[in-house]
Design a protein around this nucleic acid. Structure first.
Lengths: 106, 106
DNA sequence: AATACCTATGTAGCGATCTACTTGACAAGA
DNA sequence: TCTTGTCAAGTAGATCGCTACATAGGTATT
């Protein structure tokens, strides 16, 4: 486990993506271009470190929209300083993930 | 169900064919070259999405012309923006379906 | 009378592709 | 070495397009 506050570039990118509004694995894959085998394990680790929290979407919603259920993530309070540190360490981070639009790519 | 406004190329082609005057399944098959197993289910879906409406031809007419009755389709108001979006997304769409002549192929 | 084709609509079932998430094996890296 | 990243494959349900077939009355041929 990396000491708190020292995120790899990939982990920082994923955390940043969540922070700007990409709230589930598949949309993070699309917005970052990272493969699923990178994103999902990384989400596990970020959650284990307490930087994000997850919640499965209600079954009724997935059923209504006729697709698999999504696991939504949001950043925790602990993520804020880590994010700031990451952004100053990796200045190009923000450029790799455009902010999510209001409705789409939630 | 695809989100409203996002049509596949095939669905857009069929909708376009109706819009330019091919008003029943068989003539759409001929004008687009698509097989019946593609056209008829697609017509169902387009109608379910509210982009087209159907009406069976009067029996008397079919009997008079000595052929099976036709099910006529026309585009709804909801179809207009979808058609415009489809035409800009698939620029070759119009070329694949020549406009129906006044009397024939109705 | 049998056969075949034409118009016209329709369905069953297969394979491909999409959305999402998951995992095992291995390479890269600190 | 221990963590991290990646590839590859898998699962599971959904949609979509297609082939092949079904139906059914009409005409034309044999």
């Amino acid at each position: 486990m990396a000491e708190t506050g020292k995120l790899s570039h990939t982990a920082a990118l994923i955390l940043h993506a969540i922070a700007v509004g990409y709230r589930y694995g598949f949309s993070i894959m699309e917005s970052t271009g990272l493969p699923s085998g990178t994103v999902y394990p990384a989400l596990r680790r970020l959650e284990a470190e307490g930087l994000i929290r997850s919640q499965w979407e209600a079954e009724a919603i997935a059923e209504k929209e006729q697709r698999p259920p999504r696991k939504y993530y949001k950043t925790t309070a602990a993520a804020r300083p880590v994010l700031e540190a990451s952004r100053s360490r990796y200045p190009l981070l923000a450029a790799l993930t455009a902010p999510a639009e209001e409705k789409e790519r939630v």
